[in-house]
Design a protein around this nucleic acid. Structure first.
Length: 373
RNA sequence: GGAUGGAUGCCCGAGCGGCCAAAGGGAGCAGACUGUACAUCUGCCGACUCACGUCUACGGUGGUUCGAAUCCACCUCCAUCCA
């Protein structure tokens, strides 16, 4: 049988070293750099698969921890796997629950064996081990599955961060051993918090496990942006050439372009859909807080030059009204716009890479983004 | 005509002698949001002041009291009931 996964670099930007590539998966080819919308509970909040393909989404994320709790991985398996269950036939990536180790820190206890969670839904105790996480991810059936890691918060002490990255590495070994499906690519995750020595140790020791791709985790968790960029600069010399590099949980337009310039190929973030539901739109001139009173009588679209369905049909005034009166359509339309924006930003980034002018494009983009901010 | 119950900040509504510029909602205004515990959370929300603070306020007018949104009298309006 032919190799299920492969990554081909199609173009390297002479100005920045960023690349355009093609990552082949069982559910199709992903052109990188790519922004992946997040659909934690087998749904990108407020949007249908049809709408997502309509704006050019190539791959979406889902979440092991959340699907394990509800509806349960056995049920998803019985439904024919996650793709069929949620009617999405393009690639899917499942996060392992490692981020929940961080975000639900008040509800869990970590041991060498794994993590004991008190369900945020009903308080029931669940024990996730690397082996169990692999069993769940195998049952869900995503194209890319993430190793079970321990994500620490910005500001964690060196010894805490060191213990976490080392445990992540031991868990990675266990993940690899128990991962059963060859049609799913297991991505290991580099940790090490904001400590240069730990990051470098982590990536060096993680690389032997990277078969199809590698992820950088534990960033964008509260540290200043320049600090994140420094970490990426330190890691960059160690990034493998022949596989995609995934910066987990990022991000905002500025973080995305900074990431691409530092050799990152894959991004995901809840930001565009979350702030959309809270009444904020992303634009090339910065964030537009459409909920604000100043837009009450602004009958222009979010962005005059945007081709998304929301911008072609609705005014800021109307969208503000929808958000204001808590109509679902408001959050839906701004979510659609924000994802369209990031996906099309990625298209522009690729164009700049093709033309060997990504650094110039970055300068232009960053200058414009600060207009509203 | 009589009886009873009401009238509180933009709205609803608690308070029933001092700790009251007055609980709590809502609305309004603003901020936050980065591998989603998030259609969420936080702050402001009488006027003037950066602030300390000062002033004006609990239907109206008068009164009791050191002190009243809170007690008393009368008036106005509203609701329900009885003729």
């Amino acid at each position: 049988m032919a190799e299920k996964f492969s990554y081909k670099v199609k173009k390297v930007c002479k100005q920045s070293g960023a690349r355009i590539g093609e990552f082949t998966t069982p559910h199709g080819v992903i052109e990188t750099p790519v922004f992946m919308p997040v659909g934690t509970q087998a749904s990108v909040k407020a949007l249908s698969p049809e709408e997502l393909t309509g704006i050019g989404a190539q791959i979406i994320l889902s979440n092991t921890y959340h699907l394990f709790l509800r509806p349960g991985h056995e049920l998803v398996k019985k439904a024919g796997g996650l793709h069929k269950f949620m009617a999405w036939d393009r690639p899917i990536l499942t996060d392992s629950g490692g981020f929940q180790v961080f975000s639900l820190s008040s509800l869990r206890q970590i041991t060498e064996d794994g993590v004991k969670f008190n369900s945020h839904i009903d308080g029931a105790v669940h024990h996730l081990t690397p082996e169990y996480v692999m069993e769940i991810e195998n049952a869900l059936g995503a194209d890319i599955i993430m190793a079970f890691d321990e994500c620490t918060s910005a500001g964690a002490e060196h010894k805490t961060a060191e213990a976490a990255y080392m445990r992540t590495l031991r868990w990675l070994e266990r993940c690899e051993k128990s991962h059963k499906r060859k049609d799913q690519a297991l991505f290991p995750i580099v940790q090490g918090n904001l400590y240069r020595d730990l990051r470098i140790k982590s990536i060096k020791e993680t690389l032997p496990y990277a078969r199809h791709g590698i992820a950088v985790g534990g960033l964008s968790v509260g540290e200043p942006k320049p600090v994140m960029y420094e970490v990426l600069d330190e890691l960059r010399p160690f990034f493998p050439e022949k596989m995609p590099r995934y910066l987990m949980g990022v991000g905002s337009p500025d973080c995305i372009i900074e990431g691409v310039c530092r050799g990152i190929d894959m991004f995901d973030c809840v930001l565009p859909t979350r702030i959309a539901r809270n009444g904020t739109a992303l634009t090339y001139n910065g964030k537009l807080v459409i909920r604000n009173a100043g837009y009450a009588e602004d009958f222009r679209p979010i962005d005059e030059n945007c081709g998304c369905y929301a911008c072609r049909n609705y005014s800021r005034s109307y969208l503000r009204h929808l958000i204001n009166v808590n109509e679902i359509l408001g959050g839906r339309m701004i979510s659609l716009h924000n994802l369209y924006f990031l996906i099309h930003l990625m298209e522009k980034i690729k164009e700049a890479i093709m033309n060997d002018r990504l650094l110039d494009f970055r300068a232009e983009l960053l200058a414009n983004l600060s207009e509203i901010d």
